[in-house]
Amino acid sequence: MKLLIVEDEKELAASMVSYLKNENYTCEVAFNFKQALDKIETSDYECIALDITLPGGSGMQLLKELKNNKKTDGVIIISAKNSIDDRINGLRLGADDYLVKPFHLSELAARINAIIRRKMYKGNNVIRFNEIFIDTLAKEVMVKEEPVELTRKEYELLVYFLSNQRKVISKNALISHLWSQEMGTGESADIIYTHIKNLRKKLNEKGCGDYIKSLYGMGYKLTDQ
């Protein structure tokens, strides 16, 4: 599967590529409007991460081009502007999601995964990881064909981990994914720890492997290696 990163800030683009590319994804990068236009005209991408302010033109213009060419590439807008108007405009022009800078790469990966799931499976959204099976439409989790009862936040955590397999996710990324308002750093480590502990317990009870590892409480990683 191919991803296109359209971002003029080279270091940010480099981080995005380094984080997103894996056995499933290849990443291409465009640093300006012209490069991006060339790329979207010549190839199809599963998903495009699109910065709005680009040298040589606007990301919005690229969105229009995609629409005019009847392309079905998934698009996530990445903008420094957290403005409702921009968000609405972008979504109206056919973008699938909108992410505001600064963001965590794990968040970007989770959102790109969600877009690709929607696009590829046409509503039949499933995530598999060894014995774990998630139906993201019904929001149901099965381990070895048996349903697991999770709270809303535990479910969100699990999906997030599965979208960032074998990657260390910082505690801060988990918090900003689960809560729109951050409450300060004092208690957040304990709260995340409690949630993950409960999630692991519920999965283990159904005979699931212990996949979630902690890195001294500052980060977590879901891995089977």
Partner: peptide, 20 residues
């Protein structure tokens, strides 16, 4: 505030890569 977002995004993304 806007101009701050991109450098912050760079720092954040480098951190996310670094902890791997």
């Amino acid at each position: 505030s806007h101009e701050m977002q991109t450098p912050l995004a760079v720092v954040n993304s480098k951190l996310d890569v670094l902890i791997q």
